[in-house]
Design a protein around this nucleic acid. Structure first.
Length: 307
DNA sequence: CTAGGATCCTGTCAGC
DNA sequence: TGCTGACAGGATCCTA
C-alpha cells in the first residue's frame, strides 16, 4: 500500500520532525515486526532519513540504521505531546491516524526526546530492521531494487520488457527489481494514462511504449508527492468528515462503475490481473486491436523532480 | 532463467 | 445474528 510517493512523504515529514532527536527507548509489542536487538540503538541520535524505493532508512549516529518497510498496511505516526498533541501521520490511511495510541495494531514504539513514533501495522507484513549503516546497500531487498522511473531510459525498460515477454505488463511494472516505486494504485494509474491494457504481454510492447510508461509513472507519482501522499490531512477533512487521498490524483483506482474521466464513453471496470485487483477503462485500454497503429503520443519528456 | 500461484496476517464487507 | 468466502495500496517462496 504505501507506495513510493507515500514513503517519500513520510521521509519528508519525519525528517523535519525527528532529526537530531535521540531514541530514548524502544518498545517492541510484536516480535515479528522488529528484527535485531533494540538495545543496540537505544540512546542513538537520528541523523538522516533516506528512502530506497518503498523502504525508509533512518540513519543513527552510532553506525546503525533502522530500515522500515510498511508493506501493505504499515503506518508511521509521530505524536508530539509537548505541542498541543500535534500529530504527523502517514502511510496506510486508517482510523489509527486519529486513534488513541498505542492500540492493538501498534507493533513498535520509538520514544524520542520530544515525541513518540508509533509503527502500526494491521497485517504484520511490514517490519523495522536494524542494519549497520555501511551495510544498508547490501540488504537483500535494497540491493535488488531497480531504478526509479525518472532515472530510467526507455531503452533500459524496453530491454527488461523483452526479458519478460510472456508476463502481463502490470506484473512487470509491479516488480521492484525491474522498475522501482510503483504499487497497485500507481501501476493502474500509469497504465491508464499510457492507454495500455494491464494484461498486455510485455513482449508485444515497443520502445515507444516503454517511454510512455516511464513518463506516466513519473507524472502520476510526482503529482502525488507534490500533493503530499497519504497523510492525516487528507484523511480527516476540515469539517471532520473522512477524506480520501485518492481524490487528489486517481483516475481509475477504486473508481469502478464511474464514467471514464478521459473518454466519458465507458465505465471504469475492475478486473483481476497478476492476482491483483485492477482498474481499467475498456475503451481507452483495449486489449487487442490497432494499438500499434498511430495515435499514441511518443517520446519521453522528462518531468523534473527533486527527490 | 521465467511465470504463476500460494503464503504471511488481521480486518472488513457482501451474501446467505 | 452468525457464518463463510473474498478481498486488501507488498514481497517472497515454491513449483513447473
Amino acid at each position: 500500500m504505501p507506495e513510493l510517493p507515500e514513503v517519500e512523504t513520510i521521509k519528508r515529514g519525519l525528517s523535519k520532525l525527528t532529526i537530531k532527536q535521540k531514541i530514548k527507548n524502544i518498545k517492541v509489542l510484536c516480535e515479528k515486526s522488529f528484527i535485531g536487538n533494540p538495545e543496540t540503538v537505544k540512546d542513538a541520535t537520528i541523523t538522516k532519513i533516506r528512502r530506497f524505493g518503498k523502504a525508509l532508512v533512518i540513519d543513527l549516529d552510532n553506525q546503525k540504521s533502522l530500515m522500515i518497510h510498511l508493506r501493505m498496511t504499515g503506518q508511521l505516526i509521530y505524536d508530539d505531546k509537548g505541542e498541543k498533541n500535534k500529530r504527523y501521520a502517514a502511510g496506510h490511511p486508517s482510523e489509527n491516524f486519529i486513534a488513541e495510541l498505542p492500540n492493538k495494531q501498534t507493533r513498535v514504539i520509538l520514544e524520542l526526546e520530544n515525541g513518540t513514533i508509533y509503527f502500526n501495522d494491521q497485517r504484520k507484513f511490514g517490519f523495522i530492521k536494524i542494519l549497520a549503516t555501511k551495510e544498508v546497500n547490501k540488504d537483500p531487498f535494497i540491493k535488488k531494487l531497480a531504478k526509479e522511473p525518472w532515472q530510467m531510459t526507455p531503452e533500459e525498460l524496453y530491454e527488461k520488457l523483452q526479458r519478460h515477454q510472456k508476463s502481463c505488463i502490470k506484473a512487470v511494472i509491479l516488480d521492484q527489481t525491474i522498475i522501482t516505486g510503483l504499487g497497485n494504485i500507481y501501476a493502474d494509474e500509469t497504465l491508464f494514462l499510457s492507454k495500455i491494457h494491464p494484461s498486455t504481454k510485455a513482449g508485444t510492447l515497443t520502445k515507444k511504449d516503454a517511454g510512455t510508461i516511464l513518463n506516466m509513472a513519473d507524472k502520476v507519482m510526482n503529482l502525488s508527492i507534490a500533493s503530499g501522499g497519504s497523510t492525516l490531512k487528507d484523511y480527516v477533512k476540515a469539517d471532520g468528515t473522512r477524506g480520501d487521498y485518492l481524490d487528489k490524483f486517481a483516475k481509475v483506482f477504486n473508481k469502478q462503475g464511474q464514467p471514464c474521466p478521459a473518454c466519458g464513453k465507458a465505465k471504469i471496470e475492475k478486473i483481476k490481473v497478476a492476482g491483483r485487483g485492477t482498474h481499467i477503462c475498456p475503451n481507452c485500454q483495449p486489449l487487442t486491436g490497432d494499438r500499434f497503429e498511430g495515435g499514441r503520443e511518443s517520446g519521453r519528456t522528462r518531468q523534473e523532480v527533486s527527490i
